[in-house]
Simulated assay, not measured.
Amino acid sequence: MRESASSLCFSILRHYLKNMQITLLNDPEFTLMLSEFAIAGIYLPPFFVYACVALPIFLGMRFLLARAGVFRWVWHPGLFEFALSLCLVSILVLYV
């Protein structure tokens, strides 16, 4: 019974990925590369813009975490802050 359930899951996944790939490649709106942002005639990479947007969110979260005393329970506060900023930028890249 397990083998049939796993083979069914794999066949559904394979079918979904096959249809998704065909749909994405046939879609004229779909692009594989991120485009640059032009601000005042200066081209900026999208990662820089995402990092600039994440900075005030990070500073606000850092202030709230410091006020709550979370940094006393963290082994390496600098590493924790870096990981938090990396998570914020990743969320912005994935969902914006």
Rank of each mutant, 00 (worst) to 15 (best):
V89D: 01
G41H: 02
M61I: 07
R72S: 10
P77G: 03
L8M: 05
C52E: 13
E81G: 06
S35H: 11
A40S: 09
I57H: 09
V74M: 05
V70T: 07
S35R: 13
L65C: 04
V96Q: 05
M61H: 11
A54R: 03
M33A: 15
G69K: 03
L17H: 09
F37W: 10
E36A: 06
L13Q: 12
C9E: 01
L88C: 03
D27F: 01
I39H: 00
P45K: 11
L59N: 09
L34Y: 07
H76P: 00
Y50D: 10
F10D: 12
L88V: 01
F82I: 08
F47N: 10
T23R: 15
L13E: 13
P28E: 04
R67N: 04
L92Q: 02
M20W: 11
I22K: 15
N26I: 04
K18L: 12
I57L: 13
F48T: 13
L24F: 10
F47R: 13
F37A: 09
L17A: 06
A38E: 15
R2F: 12
L17W: 09
L59S: 06
W75L: 13
P45V: 14
S7R: 07
F10K: 13
C87F: 11
F47L: 14
I91R: 02
W73F: 15
R14L: 14
A38S: 14
P28V: 01
M61K: 09
V53Y: 12
T31E: 05
A38K: 08
I91A: 06
L55D: 08
A83K: 02
N19F: 05
M1A: 11
V89T: 04
A40V: 05
V70Y: 15
M61C: 13
M1C: 08
Y50C: 11
L13Y: 15
V70L: 14
G78P: 00
G41N: 03
R67V: 06
L25N: 12
S35Q: 13
L64P: 00
F48Y: 14
S85E: 04
A66W: 00
N26D: 13
I22L: 15
L79T: 06
G69S: 02
A83W: 04
A54P: 04
I22D: 08
Y95P: 00
S6G: 00
V49A: 02
R14Y: 15
L92Y: 04
L65A: 11
S90Q: 11
L8G: 10
